[in-house]
Design a binder for these strands. Structure first.
Lengths: 223, 223
DNA sequence: GCAACTCTACACCTCAGACAAGTTGGGTTC
DNA sequence: GAACCCAACTTGTCTGAGGTGTAGAGTTGC
């Protein structure tokens, strides 16, 4: 049991250690874990900290504690949450998936956009062109525009997928903006404007290409 | 805040109380909860017990605690399951999303496929061409081939998304096959073969187009 | 011999208090 | 007005003490 715990909350690290033992097959399904005091000493954390780690895994449906009896493994593999997946994988993978979804959504939007969709996109575009004090603010108005485009596709699944990406992408975007601000702001805004115009003119190929080109640029900037 | 806690572990009861406040809208998304000491006193449990309750909800992805800052609501209700979303929306929406994911995955696969990927795809293709007794069996070998293609893109997010679609698509496909069997089986198999060959020859555009054409055909057949 | 009962050791559960580590906002200084 | 500093919070961690429930060993009665 490697107590190689270094970063973040101790309780979270302890949970990782426990999960590692379970995944490694050291504690199979139904197995009873060592006692709290023993385990806490082995991992090198206090008893309450270990208890919090156990609670965290209990919340995920991995462990179950029975008073007077012990703590047991009730699921060897956790139903991996979507957010957890996205936090684990590389930003590059997420952006590639965004290309897939947004390029297709842009093409569909060019077919199906209503006047109301168009108004919403242009409003979002205007807000994006305004002055922004922080990276957070800029990320938000940018994501809002992209979301309007996906919404204009009138495909609920694509929109749901996009929304699933938002939190992860937002964090990555803010990080990037703080490290390396957009150098050519005009060109960036023009690219987004071109996307909206392609949709306005009902040109699926152009819309798809605009979206793809922009995201490919983001992909390059991040790698 | 009704401290009507009576049965089972106090920590679990406290978690229920917290979840109740969240569900009732008392603490909306992003809201900061009262301090641990305050909250513990209000609910009528010790601070460590309250902390375990918070950990339990954190494990479920409902709360997030930031040291020095506070505990925040990050999800107003348990993440709506993909299966639930996909059952609600139309098959057409799902297929459009499949086009987005699989066409992009096919293009990436054409870039990144390894010899091992290629072998797996050809094996799946061969199994698909064999004789099949039931619609269920055919649906399974078909999905297996499509999955191999997405896997060859070496993008974990796309693969995860595809897997999320599988159950819903499988049901729809079996339904369709029973109502209206594939009339030109040879052409259908040839289309899949062409997709694999395009990936084998590292032709992203062709691979993407094969995938898109095939799925568009399915889309048409269903509407 | 076997079943039922009792009891003890051990498990988790809860609490209280203390201190460490991090964040936030206001006041001070230049 | 901007940069800095500090104090008052916040959550994070540890310890020690009791409470409550379980399981198994030991005993008892048939």
């Amino acid at each position: 049991m490697a107590p190689a715990v270094q970063q973040g909350r101790l309780a979270a690290q302890a949970a990782e250690v426990l999960l590692g033992c379970i995944r490694a097959g050291e504690w199979p399904l139904g197995h009873k874990l060592p006692g709290e005091t023993t385990l806490a000493a082995e991992i090198g954390v206090g008893r309450s900290t270990l208890r919090e780690a156990i609670r965290e895994l209990a919340g995920q449906g991995v462990l179950e504690s029975r008073q007077g009896s012990g703590v047991f493994v009730i699921s060897t593999d956790i139903a991996e949450d979507w957010d957890v997946v996205l936090r684990r994988v590389s930003v590059a993978s997420v952006i590639e998936a965004r290309v897939a979804i947004e390029a297709e959504a842009a093409a569909l939007a060019a077919h199906r956009r209503t006047p109301s969709d168009l108004r919403a996109m242009r409003r979002a575009l205007a807000r994006r062109s305004g002055s922004h004090h922080s990276a957070e603010e800029f990320a938000d108005v940018d994501m809002a525009l992209h979301r309007e485009v996906v919404a204009a596709s009138h495909n609920e699944v694509l929109l749901e997928l996009f929304d699933g990406f938002v939190p992860r992408v937002r964090v990555a975007m803010i990080e990037m903006l703080k490290l390396r601000p957009i150098h050519d702001y005009e060109a960036d805004q023009a690219a987004h404007s071109a996307l909206v115009e392609a949709i306005a003119e009902r040109d699926p190929a152009a819309a798809s290409e605009c979206s793809r080109a922009h995201l490919t640029g983001v992909h390059r900037a991040l790698s």
